[in-house]
């Protein structure tokens, strides 16, 4: 009987202390962590929109749209939102900025990806291209959204809604186009119905 009591007391005591310690620790680290997240978010938004003074948040059922505005100007400078979907090896998360009329992309930035190093990772940066390592993301600047984004292999794109795929990483490239097409359309529907 003594053993049983001791067992229960000791394990409960350890657990209580653990819970207490972690809770106190959390009040110390949680603000910092939230701050870090906010910083990351703001940096991502700032990258994909032209200059803005502040942004409003517009929540849809599935995402949050960051509406960048200049002081005193009603018309937003652009809309930024996260898009995510399946790439070749895992999830790809992007922050994309579009014009308020959803006619073209302002800029795109990949936030998270786990594509094949050296191939799929070229969607972020391509070190093998010495002149312009950022050639892939740069294709999205000013990319027309109507008709939908198309991916061309091996040739230089002719139309303004086309981008060139990464040689050897066509699936990653196509995944980006698919994610953007689908989700930009969805966000457009939700925003314009507000």
């Amino acid at each position: 009987m003594k053993t049983i009591v001791k067992m229960i007391v000791v394990l409960t005591a350890i657990s209580l202390l653990s819970g207490g310690l972690l809770s106190s620790l959390d009040s110390y680290t949680a603000p910092r962590i939230a701050e870090n997240r906010m910083k990351q978010l703001k940096a991502a938004i700032a990258e994909v929109l032209p200059k803005y003074d502040y942004y409003d948040e517009f929540k849809t059922k599935t995402s949050v749209i960051y509406v960048g505005k200049l002081n005193g100007v009603e018309e937003p400078v652009g809309l930024a939102f996260k898009t995510a979907g399946n790439g070749f090896q895992g999830k790809i998360v992007m922050m994309v900025g579009v014009k308020p009329d959803f006619s073209e992309v302002i800029k795109m930035r990949v936030l998270e990806q786990v594509e094949t190093p050296g191939l799929g990772t070229k969607i972020v940066v391509d070190p093998s291209n010495k002149e312009n390592p950022l050639w892939f993301p740069e294709q999205f600047e000013g990319l027309i959204l109507n008709p939908a984004i198309e991916v061309i292999k091996n040739l230089k794109p002719e139309k303004d809604n086309q981008i060139q795929a990464i040689a050897g990483a066509t699936i990653s490239s196509q995944a980006i186009a698919n994610i953007l097409n689908e989700q930009i359309a969805e966000v457009k529907r939700a925003y314009e119905a507000r």
Partner: peptide, 18 residues
């Protein structure tokens, strides 16, 4: 395990914060 998990949580939160 409870003790180890506690310290791992501390380490994880500390890294995420700083």
């Amino acid at each position: 395990i409870v003790i180890i998990a506690t310290f791992v949580t501390i380490a994880d939160r500390y890294l995420a914060a700083f």
